[in-house]
Design a protein around this nucleic acid. Structure first.
Length: 213
DNA sequence: AAGTCGCC
DNA sequence: TCTG
């Protein structure tokens, strides 16, 4: 939809049972969210983690909240410290927490209590291949994913890697929530197309809120 | 506003 | 441990 003014009201798009896109839901908070990301990254720099297979991830990551997601040769895990500097992750900003809880509520998930916020930074060409979020202890809690900056193609699939996927363009301020019967659906991001965003420059950022423990 | 497959 |  043409949006010359950037002030259209959010709208809701169902994705699957237990999954929804809240279009532009976080748009008016975009600048504040990006400012918080910059503050966090000043102390906990974005890093390109290594997968268990030994590959450098094209997406750069940092975290806030009690627990942070990480990857290394030995596998994936949540940790309360940043391996870069051995210090605890910064607290989740209140604006992050409120947004995540409100978005979850609007998607039908009450009492979402995220303790982990993974912050992903995509540069042109960066991707996240199809995967499941399944390292969390309580799979009754949903995933809340906030898109900022450059647009990207999101893949939302089924329960096996080879199942068909929906492709959805996620733009600045879009919030995807999935849980319940959709909690273990495969999802990913196709290689980011180069561009320039007025607030985020040449990047796409994603906040992924989870209850990890 | 790229889709799909096979390889390790 | 294929979120490459």
């Amino acid at each position: 939809m043409l949006d010359l003014f950037g002030d259209e009201a959010p709208w809701v798009e169902p994705l699957a049972e237990g999954a929804v896109i809240l279009r532009r839901r976080a748009r008016q908070q975009g600048a504040a969210l990006l400012a918080s990301i910059a503050q966090i990254a000043a102390q906990h720099p974005f890093q390109h983690l290594i997968t268990p297979g030994g590959y450098r991830m094209s997406v750069a990551m940092t975290n806030c909240g009690d627990l942070g997601w990480s990857s290394g040769r030995r596998g994936y895990h949540y940790s309360d410290v940043d391996s870069f500097n051995g210090r605890r992750w910064p607290a989740m900003p209140q604006g992050f927490l409120l947004l995540a809880q409100q978005a979850a509520q609007e998607a039908g998930f009450t009492d979402f209590q995220p303790d982990a916020c993974l912050i992903n930074r995509y540069e042109p060409g960066a991707r996240l291949s199809l995967h499941q979020d399944k390292d969390e202890k309580d799979l009754r809690q949903p995933i809340v994913s906030v898109s900022l900056g450059l647009p990207a193609q999101f893949q939302f699939g089924g329960f096996a890697r080879g199942d068909g996927v929906q492709r959805l363009l996620l733009e600045h301020g879009d919030v995807v929530v999935w849980g319940g019967p959709s909690r273990l659906r495969f999802h990913g991001i196709l290689p980011l197309k180069p561009g320039e965003h007025p607030l985020a420059g040449p990047y796409r950022y994603n906040l992924t809120f989870r209850r990890a423990r």
